[in-house]
């Protein structure tokens, strides 16, 4: 009986997250006419598809006990690379898309290698990565580069109809595919389980003979790839490349992951939780739009308050389990 309770306890953040989402959606539905519709729900995905993709990569990083501050800048850099290659170099999307995806992947791999081989703090390495990516996008151009290309327009405007007259965008499909792959990766592959093990205790993972170094490099590579993919989706969404794109996005991403129930100390959490975390950030914005009189900064304040609550909740869980351990 006690055992069962303690497991529920560990999953409390995730349960709280889902409950919170349901609560907020019901709140919106009761308060605003037109809120309770499938399309409003689907719009959460359409507007936040890129955030879902970054959050997936970030979840793995945080699960392993690290952090990646570079993701926002990588989105900007990817959008700039895609825009300038398309508009200035006049290259075909067949070339542009792979190159754009390589941007974050390579940066992520370099970051991961620095963290692993030179034992540097993830915080500082990815901080440098953040400066670098943002700076490089300005080096490409200080101005916005608007994209006019059939491929990008197609990706931006195509609506995939769903029953009931609702629709989703291509980006949503990409995001969902990524989430499914990530869930598979996290729960049904050695790589995924090693991430959890590293987050639980890096030293134990090492003594158990797991490939800690290789996994750590891969985690940051994956996060970089996700950030680049998100950058492409963001580019479809904005149809432009700009050095200021996704400014501060790393904070939203981290917040979404934490609100999604992943422990910032690593080792516990779910990709699916991060998706719900993103949806909660989305629903806060939707409510603010529906409210009409509320201003956008309430989003930040609300996120801050949620962050605080979740972090304190996590801390209580950690203290509880430490006490339990001590008693035994």
């Amino acid at each position: 009986m006690i055992n069962r309770l303690s497991i529920d306890y560990k999953q409390l953040p995730l349960i709280a997250t889902i409950a919170l989402f349901v609560l907020m959606f019901s709140f919106g539905s009761l308060r605003y006419t037109g809120f309770f519709s499938t399309q409003v729900f689907l719009n959460l995905f359409i507007d936040n598809a890129f955030l879902i993709v970054v959050a997936v990569g970030m979840t793995f990083v945080i699960l392993s006990g690290g952090i990646d501050l570079s993701v926002g800048s990588v989105i900007a850099l990817t959008s700039m690379v895609a825009a300038s290659l398309t508009m200035e170099a006049q290259l075909s999307p067949v070339i542009v898309v792979p190159i754009s995806l390589l941007v974050g992947t390579v940066l992520g791999m370099v970051q991961g290698s620095l963290i692993h081989f030179y034992n540097l703090q993830p915080f500082i390495v990815t901080l440098a990565g953040m400066f670098l990516a943002r700076g490089l996008s300005y080096v490409i151009s200080v101005e916005t580069i608007a994209i006019e290309h059939p491929f990008f327009s197609y990706m931006a405007s195509t609506q995939i109809p769903l029953p009931g007259g609702t629709f989703i965008s291509i980006s949503v499909v990409i995001a969902i595919i990524i989430v499914i792959i990530a869930i598979f990766l996290g729960h049904f592959t050695k790589f995924g389980r090693t991430i959890y093990a590293i987050g639980g205790s890096e030293q134990s993972a090492m003594l158990m003979g797991l490939p800690v170094g290789r996994t750590k490099v891969l985690i940051y590579t994956l996060s970089g790839f996700c950030a680049s993919l998100a950058g492409l989706i963001f580019t479809f969404y904005m149809l432009s490349g700009y050095g200021l794109h996704a400014n501060g996005m790393e904070l939203d991403t981290i917040a979404a992951v934490v609100i999604g129930g992943t422990l910032l100390t690593g080792g516990a959490g779910y990709v699916a939780g991060s998706v719900v975390g993103v949806l909660i950030l989305g629903i806060i914005q939707t409510i603010i739009v529906f409210e009409g009189t509320l201003s956008s900064w309430w989003t930040k304040i609300a996120i801050g308050v949620l962050l605080f609550l979740f972090i304190v909740l996590q801390r209580i869980i950690v203290i509880r389990s430490e006490k339990k351990q001590a008693k035994e």
Binding site: K190, R193, T194, Y196, A197, G199, G200, S201, Q203, S204, A205, L207, M208, G209, L210, G267, A268
Partner: peptide, 18 residues
């Protein structure tokens, strides 16, 4: 005990040679 307490019992036995 050098295991990962955040993983299941099964995983702790098999991880690394799943």
């Amino acid at each position: 005990v050098n295991l990962c307490t955040n993983l299941s019992v099964t995983e702790n036995i098999f991880i690394g040679r799943e």
